[in-house]
Design a protein around this nucleic acid. Sequence first.
DNA 1: GCTAATCCCTCTAGCTACTATAGCTTCAAG
DNA 2: CTTGAAGCTATAGTAGCTAGAGGGATTAGC
Lengths: 137, 137
Amino acid sequence: MFSIGDLSRRTGVKVPTIRYYEQMGLISAAHRSEGNQRRYEKTDLERLAFIRHARDLGFDIPAIRDLIALSRHPDAPCAGADRIAEEHLAAVREKIVKLTKLEQELERIVSHCSGDSVEDCYVIRALSDHGMCEAEH
Amino acid sequence: MFSIGDLSRRTGVKVPTIRYYEQMGLISAAHRSEGNQRRYEKTDLERLAFIRHARDLGFDIPAIRDLIALSRHPDAPCAGADRIAEEHLAAVREKIVKLTKLEQELERIVSHCSGDSVEDCYVIRALSDHGMCEAEH
DNA sequence: GCTAATCCCTCTAGCTACTATAGCTTCAAG
DNA sequence: CTTGAAGCTATAGTAGCTAGAGGGATTAGC
């Protein structure tokens, strides 16, 4: 039996976040002590570690809910889980592409600035005048 | 004289967003028509285009506020603007690094899954067991 | 057994940058 | 003068937490 604080220390998930996950339906409502405090068991610990891990990998809460639901049917085909992971991977890649474009544009702007007065600051001028950009955005 | 709708069409910034920017102090409160509708001039258009451009480049609102303040002192040195842009560039790069690590981990997980049942689905198993990860996260 | 420190409870509000809705008023064209 | 589009304010919702207020529970030490 763990208190919510124990669970927090063992998983690295903050206490209010655990309560939030309960509210969001990622973990089921815990049993309560006589004094109305949450008491957890080992399965809850594992579940929370799963969630933590998925969050670290950037899955959002609905996706995690789906993954948990799938993990409860060991005999089902795992295409569903694969698809969720693949979609997430695709989203991550898309973000990287966008950020890389941003990086290049910012790099160009920053490196072009002579460092004199604001009047001819390349940073400010580039922001004022879209025509100075290389790529679309 | 432009209405808020004109401004929106010319800059691509949605009408409620323009009002939001006014509230956030990015643009000054517009003059009003007799019937209390906002009326803008060319300078407002330029200001809004500047904001739009900065947002497209991922600057957050406080940074844009600072950039606008700086752009009003043409004689000041532009080190401030450079620093803001450089910090933002650094933040973008950091995000790219993180996402790239994520991408690799996800790629590895997805590619390892045989595609059979949930029971031995690599996706689910990897999420359950942190020890299966290559990198820290 | 008592007390103090620490933990836990619920509820509410705040964060970013918008977006959406409701209910109302104003504007511009015909 | 009417009508439909556009504008107004105010409020609430989005994701995933985080912080705080104002209490009650638990536990370690004496």
